[in-house]
Design a protein around this nucleic acid. Structure first.
Length: 577
DNA sequence: GCCGTTTTCGGCCCGACTGTTTTCAGTCG
């Protein structure tokens, strides 16, 4: 997959161009736009180029002659001249440093010029030595903010978004399968548990002969270098930055190894204790009795079965009570991707999405959705081309028109309504009345005090026009902490006002997260699993929302969008004042 | 650098917020 790497290079080119003494802001913008286009692409640009050549690349929005040339250059040579040239002038890790809140390319460059800061490590040293606050344009507050952000980064160090790691793991698994060198191939580890971030990839393989598999892995296109490689295990560093462990086991041990390497650790410890209590020994090769005879090992389910347990979905294996429930045969049946009938958070090019209403409808229908809610931004989100009441009136007519035209899927009229600082909504009553439902969220003034923020949210709920509270905590994984609010009070107010909590499936958000979903289970709340799509390809992100819901133990009846559209609309009506 | 039912040149990317200023630059969405 070239998309994310090329997008990264374009972003960094933009960062560096922004430093030029002459104003090149539109060039900067062009590179950022191209980065977004490439990143949001369903197909790999490498495939696109192979099939349609440079002309195919130039058909992409925001990609013209010179950017298409740069993409071609990278695909063919693995390098991008423009990027390397700029990098010579600015030997700075922009990608790493822009992860620090409040640091854009200009401030980064200033610290490079005055203190020689090139990367996160340098920045940390400079901050600890209190040298940053002395630089003009930086004060004590800046230094403190940088320190805080560095600490936050430390917490998430080395962990990559599931949304990036899983597709990479699936690509590699597919390649090993197609090679014909292996019998069974599976993803294990936290990736299989669908944890929101993963530290490395674990891939399990059974094969008659392990060395050809190992050789295949060492020579994968995705591999940057081999860290270790022996007969049963190979560790490689992938170009994308993750390490990947590939283990080869005998077929009779496949289930035991899959169980063992799926984890998590606490879950496994409990399983081994149960095994001991029943006179067994459990390890990654199998379940063995006192005489060393294998009682189970080929299939994962056999091991749980022999231990008197029901097998549970990997998403539940975190030792959060699932072991005990499983022993009592009382595991919940979790919501699944195939039970999802609609998607209630979808953007179009009327605000900051890249596809038309019709294109989104057709793409959603193709995925089997029976209904989608069109939720474009409201006017406060100026940069996202948020619309005012007048524009929404016309927009809603257009949605109805497309609804009449495109069969097989129902379109619902809504908006992603900004909850303003005082808890009021960013649209007039008349417009709100025209909607099938209201989806509301917070985008500005994120650092209000806990009390104020809680009040702001509850005030919004009490308007009677909020049916779904979208990405409730507003966190961006590895980047931005959740907003400070009293979640219990918010959940209670949601219950009182029939407000549905969203589980935003966008991999950077996954909000509510698994822990908060479990916490919300005390309340009589419903959830809506949405994609927050900004392009057709994002509609596929539903699986991350569903896996988050599964990690929060949600059953289908607690998920709004497992219902038919008529029942969904009825549920919304109950919420209205 | 991209793009065109106004154009092959001249538009495109606005406003709030913050911290640092002494009138504003930089970041963020």
């Amino acid at each position: 997959m070239y998309n994310s790497r090329i997008a990264e290079l374009f972003e960094e080119i933009a960062d560096m161009l922004a430093l030029d003494t002459v104003d090149r802001k539109f060039e900067v913008l062009a590179y950022r736009k191209a980065a977004q286009t490439v990143l949001g692409l369903q197909e790999d640009v490498g495939e696109l180029y192979k099939k349609k050549g440079i002309g195919g690349l130039m058909e992409l929005p925001g990609v013209g002659k010179s950017i298409a040339g740069a993409i071609r250059e990278y695909i063919e040579t693995g390098k991008m001249g423009k990027h390397e040239e700029l990098k010579k002038r600015y030997p700075i890790d922009f990608k790493g440093l822009t992860l620090i809140q409040g640091m854009g390319s200009k401030r980064i460059f200033k610290l490079y010029k005055s203190l020689g800061v090139r990367n996160i490590e340098d920045l940390k040293k400079a901050a600890e030595a209190h040298r940053i606050s002395g630089i003009s344009g930086f004060g004590k507050k800046s230094e403190d903010e940088i320190k805080k952000s560095l600490a936050q980064l430390e917490l998430t160090k080395g962990r990559m978004l599931l949304g990036l790691a899983l597709p990479e793991a699936e690509d590699i698994v597919e390649k090993i399968r197609k090679s014909g060198l292996a019998e069974r191939v599976a993803i294990a580890g936290s990736t299989r548990r669908m944890k929101e971030t993963v530290g490395d990839l674990d891939i399990l393989v059974t094969a008659r002969d392990s060395e050809p598999v190992m050789e295949f892995v060492r020579n994968l296109e995705e591999t940057q270098r081999t860290i270790a490689s022996g007969p049963t295990k190979t560790t490689v560093l992938l170009k994308m930055g993750l390490t990947c462990d590939v283990r080869v086991v005998e077929d009779k041990s496949f289930g035991a190894a899959l169980q063992y390497f799926t984890g998590n650790k606490d879950h496994n410890v409990k399983l081994r204790q149960i095994a001991i209590s029943k006179g067994y020994k459990l390890n990654e090769y199998g379940l063995f009795d006192k005489k060393g005879r294998m009682a189970a090992g080929k299939e994962e389910g056999d091991i749980y079965d022999k231990l008197g347990m029901d097998i549970m979905p990997p998403e539940m294996r975190e030792d959060r009570g699932e072991v005990e429930l499983s022993q009592k045969h009382r595991l919940p049946i979790l919501v699944g991707l195939d039970g999802i009938k609609g998607d209630l958070h979808v953007h179009t090019n009327r605000s900051d999405g890249s596809n038309t209403i019709e294109e989104m409808a057709i793409a959603a229908r193709k995925l089997g959705r029976k209904y989608i809610g069109i939720t474009d931004h409201t006017k406060s989100e100026y940069i996202a081309h948020g619309m005012d009441d007048r524009k929404f009136a016309k927009h809603f007519q257009d949605i109805d028109n497309v609804d009449g035209k495109v069969g097989g899927i129902r379109l619902l009229k809504s908006a992603e309504i900004d909850i303003l600082k005082d808890g009021s909504l960013d649209l007039g009553r008349k417009t709100l009345e025209l909607m099938d439902y209201g989806l509301a969220s917070i985008h500005t003034a994120l650092n209000m005090s806990r009390g104020e923020m809680t009040r702001r949210v509850i005030t919004a709920f009490e308007t009677g026009y909020v049916n779904i509270f979208a990405h409730p905590t507003d966190r961006i994984i590895n980047v931005r902490s959740p907003i400070d609010m009293d979640l219990d009070k918010v959940f209670q107010a949601a219950e009182d006002n029939n407000v549905i909590m969203e589980i935003d499936g966008y991999p950077e958000r996954l909000d509510l997260n698994d822990e908060n979903i479990l916490r919300a289970s005390k309340y009589k709340l419903k959830f809506s699993i949405d994609t927050d799509s900004h392009s057709q390809s994002h509609l596929l992100l539903m699986r991350y929302g569903v896996s988050t819901a599964r990690r929060g133990w949600l059953t289908p009846e607690r998920v709004l969008n497992t219902m038919d559209v008529d029942d969904v609309l009825k549920a919304f009506k109950r919420g209205r004042r």
